[in-house]
Amino acid sequence: MVIMKSNKIGVLGIGNLLMHDDGFGVQCVEQLIIKYILPENLNVLDGGTAGIMLAPFIEETNILYILDSVDLQDKPGTIHRFTDHDVKSGDIQTRMSPHQVGLLEILELSKLRGKAPERVEMITVVPEDLSLGIGLSPRIEAKVDEVLDILLDCLEGVGIVLQKKERETYPCSTEH
């Protein structure tokens, strides 16, 4: 693969923290921020359920990784990976979780504006508990590290090798 130095890579965690496993993507991103040193050309965002408001972040990236929960008929905890092309070609249902109605629309809109990322890859997990409340169910929590490992592999593929911090810290600002 040709690696361009000017690549701006984005990692976007999506989900609602108040609905247990729906917040999976956000929890993954939080762990990434706490545990790793993030280089300049890697933008990481806890996108919550912001829909159209995420357009600016998405348009600033060339390669985008989306971490999320997925509404598929499969065993809870199963990890599914796909690209934006898979979603459009009808391989899976377009509506993946309650907040995600707008994500594909944003990508379409960004494409029209000539600002869509060249590549979008989604790493998702099938949730177990979508009831109201904070925190992941144990089976899904155990998947956070697994998804982060997959993400780290992906990032290595595009030339970003993340180093662990010596001490886990929470940054005071994640302004992008």
């Binding site: 806890d46 996108g47 919550g48 912001a50 408001m53 995420l54 005071c172 600002s173 994640t174 302004e175």
Partner: peptide, 11 residues
């Protein structure tokens, strides 16, 4: 973003 440290969900 500048004043709230982050959007969405200011901090």
């Amino acid at each position: 973003t500048i004043l709230g440290s982050k959007t969405p969900h200011i901090q």
